[in-house]
């Protein structure tokens, strides 16, 4: 009897924690998204589905911008992280863990502080642009801050380790003898990479994309610090609706809409990339 209960007892603390601090707030938020009213007079649950259509039509620009920035930053992360992870996994030798630690080092500094340091670096008369402008290499009115580029760059920088780690883990597991076997079977370096290493690291890229795209799309710190009025993301909108306008129903509706869009996107992505079909194609 006790043996059969043991697994449930083990899952109980974590399960309770999630029930109280995740499921319960979710239910509360979901009910908020269907309420009407204001802070002063209180909110009533009226099953007001219009919160969704209203908020989506009001902030569709920001929503689309968030998804575009999310895709751009995720793509930039893949392009930067893959070579780095590859190099650490196959060329890192005995210093692999040191290199990984260096990759993670920025994480020891607060997220907001890191983002502010980028603001300092990219300021119109900062240490990068200032000298370039003085030297006449850039026009005086050139700026990076308050552009979409600055936001995407900040997002890429902040989430890069989330991409490096899973890709590294996948590459680390690739037996170097498989590469030798491919070379022995007439594959050049490029073919050996494309036919063997890349397909075997797809699960790592898959995990990395999940771990970056979702938080990046919902991020509001980078847009706040590095973006201007034309670069606000959906996270900024939700934050404003909650904390400034106190419009909890609209904010909650927008949060759930974003969650639904991300989930649909991820399931579509998982179907396309997460199955073995992709690997079969790569094998040809």
């Amino acid at each position: 009897m006790r043996r059969r209960l043991a697994p449930y007892l083990l899952v109980l603390p974590g399960g309770l924690w999630l029930a109280i601090f995740f499921v319960l707030p979710m239910v509360v938020m979901l009910s908020f998204s269907l309420m009407q009213g204001d802070v002063v007079n209180g909110f009533q649950l009226t099953w007001h589905w219009q919160n969704y259509t209203d908020s989506l039509s009001a902030y569709d620009d920001q929503l689309i911008r968030s998804l575009v920035y999310g895709l751009l930053a995720t793509a930039a992360c893949v392009l930067l992280a893959y070579p780095a992870a590859y190099w650490i996994a196959f060329r890192g030798g005995s210093r692999k863990s040191t290199y990984l630690f260096l990759m993670l080092l920025p994480f020891f500094v607060s997220f907001v502080l890191r983002t502010f340091s980028w603001k300092f670096l990219l300021a119109d008369d900062g240490i990068v642009l200032g000298p370039l402008k003085n030297a006449g290499l850039l026009p005086q009115d050139f700026h990076v801050l308050a552009t979409g580029f600055a936001v995407v760059a900040g997002l890429t920088y902040n989430y890069l380790p989330f991409m490096v780690l899973p890709i590294y883990v996948a590459l680390e597991r690739v037996d170097p003898r498989l590469i030798e076997a491919a070379q022995d079977l007439y594959a050049g370096r490029a073919q050996a990479f494309l036919r063997v290493v890349l397909p075997l690291s797809v699960p790592g890229v898959f995990a990395g994309v999940l771990m970056t795209f979702v938080p990046v799309s919902a991020d509001y710190v980078n847009a706040t610090v590095l973006g201007g009025t034309n670069n606000t993301m959906i996270g900024n909108v939700i934050q404003n609706l909650y904390l400034v306008n106190n419009d909890y129903p609209q904010a909650a509706a927008l949060s759930f809409a974003l969650m639904a869009i991300l989930l649909i996107g991820i399931f579509a992505y998982a179907r396309a990339l997460g199955t073995e079909d992709v690997l079969e194609v790569a094998a040809r």
Partner: peptide, 29 residues
Amino acid sequence: PPNRRDVNMVFQSYALFPHMSVFENVAFG
């Protein structure tokens, strides 16, 4: 380089490509 030598090798741990079927493994070269 090995890919331009007309010899093939059977590896100690076989080094079969785990993501490919038997047919694709054999057809690789």
